[in-house]
Simulated assay, not measured.
Amino acid sequence: MRTRSGPRAGVTAVLAAALALGVAGCVSLDEPEQTPSPTAGGNPAQLLGQLTVAGAGSMKGYSRNRFPHWRDTGKNCDVRDNVLKRDGENIKLSGCNVVGGRWESAYDGRALSDPSDVDIDHMVPLANAWRSGADEWDDAKRGDFANDLDRPQLIAVSATSNRAKGDQDPSQWKPANRSYWCQYAADWVRVKHHWGLTVTSAEKAALTDMLEDCTWASNP
């Protein structure tokens, strides 16, 4: 566990106390959490080989409401706020709401400073998950999936890139930022593997191609 000392520790203590007391106004956080390594939790290429290949299921019965989000994570705070804080820099808060900061959209490289221009994308889209096996879950489990902060399922990106992606899989859409393809493919695989979701043959082929260009993909 990392510890702080000196003036920075005092600032951190004051900030924590202010948030705990619900002090009005804005505060700034400038230490975002680190993005996990693409190989954390297992080699993505190996995990991809463990996924079940199946045709895309029906959209019958699908609704975003079947994946309840965003869950509360504190007083006037929800999962969306958590992701904005985690993925941004120089975050400004009003209570628990993110009102300012800086985000770099990994999908297209855009720099964003207005939270309203930032979307929280589900790495594996809800509709894709429905077609991949989530249609058989109950709404509580679908809610766990839609609010999953433990896997790389949620990411702050530009609204334009998120809308362009829609519910498409990597055989249909890839980030314009090609340098992010390794991370994108690894995260997609890790989410599907954890949740036991299937992949189509075209989806698996696209992910295989993306992972083959990664220097770490062939290592155990």
Rank of each mutant, 00 (worst) to 15 (best):
G61S: 12
N147C: 08
E31A: 14
S116H: 09
N97H: 15
V23K: 12
M59W: 01
G74S: 10
T52R: 10
S37P: 03
C96V: 09
G88L: 07
T73I: 11
N90W: 12
A129I: 09
L47K: 02
R86F: 03
D30C: 12
Y107L: 10
C26G: 12
S37C: 08
G109L: 07
L112V: 11
D139N: 10
D81W: 00
L126N: 09
P44C: 05
G143V: 06
T39R: 10
S116L: 08
N82F: 00
E104W: 06
R142N: 02
Q50S: 01
N128P: 00
A106R: 12
G101R: 02
C77L: 05
S105W: 03
D87L: 03
A54I: 08
A24K: 11
G143S: 15
G57S: 07
V79F: 00
D78I: 11
A129Y: 06
R64E: 07
R71V: 01
I91T: 04
S63M: 08
W70H: 11
Y62D: 13
K92L: 14
D87T: 06
C26L: 07
N90Q: 13
S94W: 10
T52P: 03
A127I: 04
S28D: 08
D138L: 03
L112I: 15
F145L: 04
S116D: 13
G88T: 08
R64C: 11
R151S: 14
Q34A: 15
V99P: 03
L47F: 00
E89D: 13
W130I: 05
L48A: 00
D108M: 06
R151Y: 01
A134I: 06
R86N: 01
D117P: 02
M123N: 11
L47H: 02
D119A: 15
V79T: 15
Q50P: 00
K60P: 00
L84H: 02
A146Q: 06
D72Y: 00
N147H: 03
S28H: 06
S63N: 13
W137E: 04
R131W: 02
N128W: 02
